[in-house]
Design a binder for these strands. Structure first.
Lengths: 239, 239
DNA sequence: TATTGAAATATGATATATCAAATGACATAA
DNA sequence: TTATGTCATTTGATATATCATATTTCAATA
């Protein structure tokens, strides 16, 4: 949860000297963060059941923060609630996955267009590093790790656009598709499509060519989506 | 909250005969809905404080559902939480408002493109009706009512696109900007920009020209945003 | 063996209790 | 009058209690 900073008449001198008291994230926030990370990292497979009580026991908190965190994820569409009001991670069908990708395809190009003129050299170097790391993960057949790095690559670009609302929306898109993506990570096997597309993205950023960067990320997204959609629509068995 | 329907081996015959038992929305859902409607209708002015306890007293429920509903809105960015953890409705500054409009500008054209081939004649007639109602409200100087109708016009177009995820994102965009929009409704005074643009949108839909519809809605959005942004950036006093 | 059904258990939804932090009221001192 | 300190009240965060539903277990029965 993002707290707004306020305080009208704070003395800047005192503030500098003593620093600021921070009350730290609430238990709900902490549970939420852990759940979120777990969803992105594939701790739960798509469709797996979750109970607030077990979560609260596992994390050593009471029902309330566990439940609140779960509800928050439900609200973002990262968790499902059944007719009987039980919770589970989402398992996107082909249509739903395509919708997520359509939205990413609408938003990430805008983000990268805004971000392109703002990147520092260090940040560009970091993008290159990330991409090489991803290549390495793929060659080691650590596909889930490769996906993590892919998400870091994309999200750090979105960060640079400095559009907090857009960023939070893109976050929820990743979160929603996370478990499904992870389940299908085998389908990325030996594919370096992402790697080549990322190189194009980086090249465009280096030339400060925002339109080219937007086009490159669109290609990356549509080609990446095509792989997943092929699996989802074909209903192929896992690996 | 959207419940997933499931149930593997239900007998369709019995189900048809007796109908289905529905458990109705939870108290949390009901409070959430009321809050949401209130925000869109300008019950609270931007920046106004809210307490979970007062809300629970007012609505005759316990703290838990009131609090959960508030947290849900906070999560969607429709309510703020201060450093001191008190709740208030959002009051967008110019930059934030522009970000909302940038996102609407990215998403609503996509929605209308998808929707254009799907509209029935009745639905188009309804759009025309809504637009005329809006005109009437403006001429009666009922600007807040006009804004309500404007939102109904846009959201019913988005509905037709049948992209539930996109629709929910667009919803949160409206919700976030709602109080600010309502506060500035005076700035729409005697302006019929929206009315004319809506007519262009409708005409494009009637011709089943998706691209033209998208262009028309983009124009509607950018011109509408310009009015608000002029007020917000000029920091002009109310009315 | 397959089905049923009752009791035990688990679960989500909601209410209530508790506590520390924030706020407000008010009296007193400067 | 204005600033300051004290105390009562309010508030959000969290824990716990309660209740109606679901789910599971398992023995009795067909």
């Amino acid at each position: 949860m993002v707290l707004q900073t306020d305080n009208p008449k704070a003395d800047p001198a005192t503030k500098d000297l003593l620093g600021v008291v921070d009350r730290g994230p609430s238990l709900t926030d902490q549970v939420y963060e852990k759940l979120r990370r777990g969803l992105l990292m594939g701790v739960w497979s798509p469709g797996e059941k979750l109970t607030a009580r077990k979560l609260s026991r596992d994390l050593g908190v009471s029902l309330t923060p566990a439940r609140e965190a779960i509800m928050r994820l439900v609200n973002e569409g990262a968790l499902d609630v059944s007719e009987k009001r039980t919770f589970s991670t989402v398992d996107l069908n082909c249509e739903q996955y395509k919708e997520v990708m359509r939205l990413r395809g609408a938003l990430e190009p805008i983000a990268i267009e805004l971000a392109t003129p703002l990147f520092s050299e260090e940040e560009i170097t970091r993008l290159i590093d990330l991409n090489e790391q991803m290549k390495a993960m793929i060659s080691e057949e650590r596909y889930n790790d490769a996906l993590q790095i892919d998400s870091e690559f994309h999200l750090s670009i979105c960060d640079r656009a400095e559009q907090p609302l857009m960023r939070s929306i893109i976050d929820t898109l990743w979160l929603r598709a996370g478990p499904t993506r992870n389940r299908l990570s085998y389908s990325y096997r030996k594919r370096l499509i992402g790697y080549e597309n990322h190189k194009r993205i980086i090249a465009a950023i280096q030339l400060r060519d925002a339109a080219a960067a937007a086009a490159a990320i669109e290609r990356d997204l549509s080609e990446g989506a095509a792989v997943i959609v092929a699996v989802l629509s074909g209903d192929q068995p896992d690996s």
